[in-house]
Simulated assay, not measured.
Amino acid sequence: MTTKLLKLTRATGLFAALLAQAVPAAAQMPEFKRIPAPVDAAAIPLYAGQAPGSETRTEPEVWDMMSGNRVVRNVGRPTITPVLPAAGKASGAAVVIVPGGGFKFLSMDGEGWPIARWLADHGIAAFVLKYRPNETPGDEATFTQKMIADFMKAMSDPNATLPLNEPLATADTLQAIKLVREGAAKWQIDPARVGLIGFSAGAVATLEAATASPVAARPNFFGYIYGPMAAAAAVPADAPPMFVAIAMDDSLFGKQGFGIVESWRAAKRPVELHAYEKGDHGFGLGKPGTTTMMMMPEFNAWLDARGLLRPAK
């Protein structure tokens, strides 16, 4: 899958991506406040030793509170954290969760742990992926200033195309799939039922992983939640089934049409689309008062209809 067509075509889109999923594009710049890193004793490193491609990184990992949402930046040691169903409830399916954040940070409260708990409560083994976004200034004030500068630069050429991808995020997503399959027996997982669900920038990483080579490295299915909707490049003839969800008033991708869906249809690959009237960008588990609250139940129903929620043997 090429990333050339997965681009934002308006400068305001870059601004919204940098603001991340916790706030709409039109909101003012949120405040980033440093917080202690949460203790995650269950986290499993994706790589033994230094992660390939992180050799030149210099900034330490940073956790911030942003609009009541914990976010993490400058991840150099990517991990997955298992969140498993209660004893006797496992369906055998597994989903790796790929949070968004414009490849500047990861929205862990908005699109990470709550999603995992929902899946585990419904018998699906969940794994929260803390992948590597782009490196950013460690100091919050400098980070915010850089975001504003990037926005103003983009605004100077409103017709510029702006890439929204990060190869390290894709590499970490593929590595997470590999580790989950390797631990299938330990986690009561069927290695042929390991999928992804990605949000915004995380959706881009899931799309790249779903079309990667070799075929055996891909997920068996994936959820593409309010990612770029413009037409994708040629879809492999054996691409995995895709579940797509977006709000029609999405301030970032809501006016791009449904090219990504049509590309799957043209390749004669299974795809399901849920387009909600309201919800804007970054609704996560759902925005109260809108039908986006049905997104996770509908994703679960889609998995069930595809026979992916058979009880583990």
Rank of each mutant, 00 (worst) to 15 (best):
P36Q: 00
G49F: 01
D190R: 14
P270V: 05
I177C: 03
L179C: 10
A234I: 13
K89C: 10
L168F: 00
K278H: 14
D64I: 08
I189R: 04
V71G: 10
A231K: 15
I115R: 08
G102A: 11
S54K: 06
G257S: 11
V39H: 10
G289W: 08
Y224C: 02
L273P: 03
R269C: 05
L84M: 07
E55R: 12
I197T: 05
K104W: 05
F222N: 01
Y226A: 01
S213G: 04
M296L: 14
N159V: 11
A301T: 13
T9D: 13
P191N: 11
R132S: 11
Q175R: 15
P236I: 05
K89N: 14
T56V: 11
V194R: 07
V23W: 00
R117Y: 10
G227A: 09
P241T: 13
A20S: 15
A86R: 14
R117S: 14
V261I: 14
S200E: 06
E61V: 15
V235N: 04
V96K: 00
P85E: 01
A267T: 09
A184I: 11
L129C: 09
E59R: 03
W118F: 15
P133A: 12
E208A: 14
M155Q: 15
A210P: 10
H281L: 04
L308P: 00
A232I: 13
Y276W: 01
G76Q: 09
A11T: 13
Y224G: 02
A26W: 04
V95G: 00
L162I: 15
K255S: 15
A16K: 06
A171P: 04
A93H: 12
G307W: 02
T206K: 01
A232F: 11
D109G: 05
P297L: 06
D250Y: 04
N134H: 14
K255L: 10
K146E: 15
A210W: 02
V204A: 11
G195M: 01
W63Y: 12
K33G: 03
M147D: 10
F127P: 12
S200Q: 07
A22V: 12
G100V: 09
M152L: 14
M295D: 10
F283Q: 03
A247I: 04
T211E: 01
N159H: 10
M295F: 07
M155E: 13
